Amino acid sequence: MTLKPVRKAILPVAGLGTRLLPATKSVPKEMLTIVDRPLIQYAVDEAREAGIEQMIFVTGRGKATLDDYFDIGFELETTMRERGKSLDALEPSRSGFGEVVSVRQQQPLGLGHAVWCARHIVGDEPFAVLLPDDLMLGNPGALKQMMMAYAEHGGNIVCAQEVPAERTASYGIIAPGDTKGALTEVRGMVEKPAPEDAPSRLGIVGRYILQPEVMDILGKGDRGAGGEIQLTDGMAKLIGSQPFHAVTVDAVRHDCGDKVGFVMANIAVALQHDDLRSKLGEFLDGIRPG
């Protein structure tokens, strides 16, 4: 069987970021920095590493800075050149022609609806979805690990991690089948089940590789948990008609939509920087409870 390549990725970025107020009152949460670059940059870098050629931002009002960030800053670059400064630091923030496109989600109707808003750009191709709130630190990146599984098994691939039993109501939870190494067959999914109703503790976290047929399902507008169009519900209807697997990736996840998660992500990334590790380590060593 010849697999269609995954060339496009949807990045839903229309959320209001209310958990990070007041910082997100006028700045998109995806533009808040993790050490030296905005959160959106990490998701784009991960997608590029995995071979994605086009990023589709599903935006809302007040999110124009996301597009501006990946544009060429003519005035800034001209001034830096005139002053003999290197432009290397700006290279990741530059997008090629057509690499970044945007579409609006005009109503907050859920993640499934946000993905559906990109249907005309995706067309009849398989596509990836990355939730920038979920910063995944791994080498190789989480999406590239999933791409390796896709190359072997095709179909649909979701990223999964074990979650505490008391947190199942915050995730889509997988009903697992056979497991081989990091790969688990997906036999069913439940969106945000109570702990006593959860079929496992294998939670879906913010990375997906999906076949285009899911768009037709999402387009029916069926509402699920919270009265929203849930991506998990749409994916569940593909099970049985297409291969469906979960990959437990070798990566550390930080929920950067949460204040504690955001701070922890900054520390984790800073500790990866040779020029920051020593001073930050001294600071952390000096902290004492109370």
Rank of each mutant, 00 (worst) to 15 (best):
L21W: 07
Y69K: 00
Q161V: 05
T33G: 01
A43Y: 00
Y171S: 01
A270P: 11
T179A: 13
D197C: 07
Q230I: 12
M136K: 04
L183K: 02
I174D: 01
I229D: 08
Y150M: 03
I217Q: 03
K8M: 07
V260P: 06
C256A: 06
M148N: 05
D36F: 05
G155R: 03
T65N: 12
G15Y: 10
E166Q: 09
H113Y: 14
R61C: 13
C256Q: 02
H254N: 01
C159T: 02
M31L: 12
V249I: 02
A142T: 03
D134M: 10
D222A: 14
T24C: 10
Q41V: 12
R167V: 05
E99C: 09
F57R: 10
G261K: 03
Q242H: 09
G188Q: 11
H120L: 09
E152F: 06
Q272K: 11
A118L: 14
I209D: 00
L271Y: 07
G51S: 09
H273R: 13
V6S: 01
A151E: 14
A47R: 08
V58W: 00
L32Y: 07
L131Q: 06
K220E: 15
R167L: 12
H254S: 03
I229M: 13
A9I: 09
G177F: 11
A268Y: 05
L131A: 02
P38G: 10
G226E: 14
N266R: 05
S102V: 15
A165Y: 14
G15T: 14
F127N: 04
L3E: 04
G286N: 13
C117R: 09
I174P: 04
G224V: 06
T2I: 10
G62Q: 12
P164K: 08
R223W: 14
M189Q: 11
F70Y: 13
L111S: 10
T24E: 11
Q272T: 15
A142S: 14
Y69E: 00
I209F: 03
A246W: 03
F74W: 15
I287T: 09
S95Q: 04
I174Y: 10
V103Q: 15
G177Y: 11
L11N: 03
V27F: 06
T248N: 06
M80E: 00
S241D: 10
